[in-house]
Amino acid sequence: MINLLLLVRVHPLFWFVVALGIATGYFRELLMLFVIVCFHELGHAVAAKYFGWRLRKIELLPFGGVAETEEYGNRPYREELIVILAGPFQHLILMAFSWIAVSLFPFWTTSDHEAFLFHNSALLFFNLLPLWPLDGGKLLQLITCKFLPFREAQTWTLRFSFGFLMIVALITALFYPMHLQWWVILVFLSVCHYLEWRQQPYGFLRFLLERRLLANQREKKNILIHVSSKESIHAALRRLHKDKQTVYKIKETGHLIEERDLLDHWFQTRESHVSIGTLAHL
């Protein structure tokens, strides 16, 4: 646990929000939110550490937090699902503790309890919305990866998430046009979508590199994909599925090409537009 606490970082804007809370008399509520967010992110971190994930940092942001890892989409579905849900699960634990505390400790008043339950419920609901980079958005990508190749899942997750964000923005404009804090959050999420959209190729590259490095470390279900000999290596790599070992079968010749051979060739030559059929003759 001490090692995890050493990974905690605080975004500079977080201190601005703290100062704002003190100036406006909402420091107690802000302290509650700070505790909730810390436990939420530590839930992710503890689960990730349990499965041996490489943790980079736990950062507290002005409107929440994030536990960053050095994992790029090649962990088993079960592990990723548990790590994603470990954060929201902390809200349920905290609410249970609050119910106990209100009956045992005089300093924890009924108003404190009600405020704590409200903040927990609000953050839990908000965090599970299908918006990137919230836990709901990560669940959306995990589900999408079940049906689409990883690269397509990246794109469609962001498209759906951005569409949902536009619906939320429209509802906000119609019913809560003067809610400044909510608009700031929506702008923040919009920037996150833009940056993630721009970084898709780099995220996919990290996925491929990690896939190559972990090729012999985990057993995966094999899937057979029929491809034309004229299809480029780049296009073939975009067909890779999460947690499935891909074997390519050339339609014209019947040759079988393992995904590792494709990855090795691409990383050694970087010839992404060469046809996959040329590998069958190497």
Rank of each mutant, 00 (worst) to 15 (best):
Q181F: 15
I250R: 00
F126I: 15
S121N: 03
A235K: 11
L279I: 05
E152I: 12
F14E: 01
H234A: 06
L13P: 01
Y248D: 02
E259L: 00
M32T: 06
I22C: 01
K146M: 08
W53L: 15
V247L: 08
P106G: 11
F51H: 15
S229D: 06
T253Y: 03
K230D: 08
G52V: 11
L104T: 10
L7V: 12
Y194H: 13
K230V: 03
A169C: 13
I185T: 15
R198F: 15
G203D: 02
S121W: 05
P106Q: 15
D112W: 09
I143L: 15
A153Q: 00
G254S: 06
L139T: 13
F16L: 04
A236C: 14
W182T: 09
L61K: 02
M1F: 04
W132E: 06
H119Q: 06
A19W: 15
R260W: 09
V184K: 01
I171H: 14
L189D: 01
R206D: 04
G43S: 13
L186V: 04
E71W: 07
I93M: 08
L240S: 01
H265V: 10
R9K: 14
G254Q: 03
W266D: 04
L94V: 12
W132T: 14
H91I: 12
T69H: 01
A169L: 12
H273S: 13
H234C: 12
H241P: 02
E259G: 04
K244S: 06
A115N: 14
W182Q: 14
A169I: 08
V46G: 07
V8E: 00
H273C: 11
E71Q: 08
Q245G: 10
K49I: 09
P12S: 03
I171S: 04
V66A: 13
Q90H: 06
L128V: 15
V83Y: 03
L209K: 05
W99F: 14
F63N: 01
F204S: 04
A122H: 09
E29A: 07
F175V: 14
L6E: 11
F150R: 12
E258G: 10
L263D: 03
L94S: 07
M1S: 05
F97A: 12
L94Q: 14
L189Y: 02
G87M: 07
R212W: 10
F16E: 08
L180Y: 13
I143C: 07
I250N: 02
Q141H: 14
Q217P: 00
R270I: 06
H265N: 02
L131T: 09
L131M: 08
E196T: 14
V66D: 04
R211W: 05
Y248F: 15
L6F: 13
F150M: 10
F150V: 11
L240V: 06
E79K: 07
L189P: 03
P177M: 04
N216I: 01
R75F: 07
F118A: 06
Q199P: 00
N74G: 00
K249P: 03
L224C: 07
V10Y: 04
C192E: 15
L195M: 13
A45W: 07
R28G: 02
V102A: 09
K146V: 09
L158P: 07
F160I: 12
F105I: 11
Y176A: 13
P76W: 01
K230M: 07
L214F: 05
Y72E: 10
Q268W: 13
T69M: 14
G137W: 08
L174H: 00
E79I: 09
L262H: 02
F150L: 15
M32D: 03
V37S: 00
